[in-house]
């Protein structure tokens, strides 16, 4: 897998520091009201957090800032020690490869099979098919898509699409995993399995950040919560309502 010199240097300098840091970050879309206001928080490597909040509170906007789909209108975001506003266009892809994302709308490629969709991050990273073919098959089997791996996404049910999106996000063993409503279309049993997968990845060192409405899952996990209210961040301790 190709890694830029900047990313390699960062690995050494940033190993024990915050993996993600927001410093008084605000985000405004065009002339509309601020979607996020003065957000400040930091995530340690290997931490597990939920982001909660009502619809429109800014959960997805916060996610977009972290996976660098949008830039903050004010403040500073540091990802793996890099100020994302100052990262060169050439280094940005290498930073993004270290972040796995489960999009709320899945964003699957409809013309590719489930197997091809799951393998996208590995192909982009330049790995040879022989090196990951079995891993992808195993992962798809694990998320319950063993018999659906060669069908196209439009033929998958909502929950199957969601599981495929999760498989794609975790297949490259990202250092940060972002999931926007990852269990929204899943039944209780599959939600439990997915949460277990996220927990296992977290134990292996992946920093996990999940945006969700599912208060039951949040309460059951006992993990700390970053609660958003109308663009403002309210920290909550683990288990706090």
């Amino acid at each position: 897998m190709g890694t830029s010199p900047l990313a390699r240097l960062s690995d050494k300098l940033f190993a024990a520091d915050d993996v993600l840091r927001f410093d008084n970050v605000s985000l405004t879309y065009g002339r509309r009201a601020e979607a996020l206001r003065g957000i400040s928080f930091a995530l340690k490597p290997g931490s597990f957090h939920f982001i909660t909040g009502a619809s429109g509170a800014g959960k997805s906007s916060l996610m977009k800032l972290i996976y660098m789909a949008v830039k903050p209108t004010a403040g500073k975001i540091e990802l793996f020690g890099h100020d994302v506003s100052k990262v060169s266009a050439g280094d940005l892809p290498f930073l993004r490869r270290r972040v796995g994302v489960v999009f709320q709308d899945f964003r699957l490629l409809d013309h590719l099979s489930a197997f091809d969709n799951a393998a996208v991050p590995l192909r982009i990273a330049g790995l040879k098919p022989e090196s990951y073919r079995n891993d992808v098959a195993e992962l798809l089997a694990w998320v319950g898509l063993k018999d659906r791996m060669h069908v196209l996404p439009p033929t998958l049910a909502g929950g199957e699409k969601q599981r495929l999106a999760i498989a794609r996000a975790v297949v490259g063993r990202p250092e940060i995993l972002l999931a926007d409503e990852p269990t929204g279309n899943l039944d209780a049993e599959m939600s439990e399995r997915i949460l277990k997968l996220f927990t296992q990845l977290n134990r292996l060192g992946t920093t996990v950040l999940i945006a969700t409405h599912d208060q039951t899952m949040v309460a059951r996990s006992g993990m700390p919560v970053l609660h958003l209210d109308a663009g403002h961040l309210i920290r909550r301790a683990a288990g706090e309502e």
Binding site: M68, R96, V101, R107, L109, V120, P121, I124, R168
Partner: peptide, 12 residues
Amino acid sequence: EVVEVLHLTGAE
């Protein structure tokens, strides 16, 4: 959409 997904997944 394809371009955006590839881009956000780390494609140069």
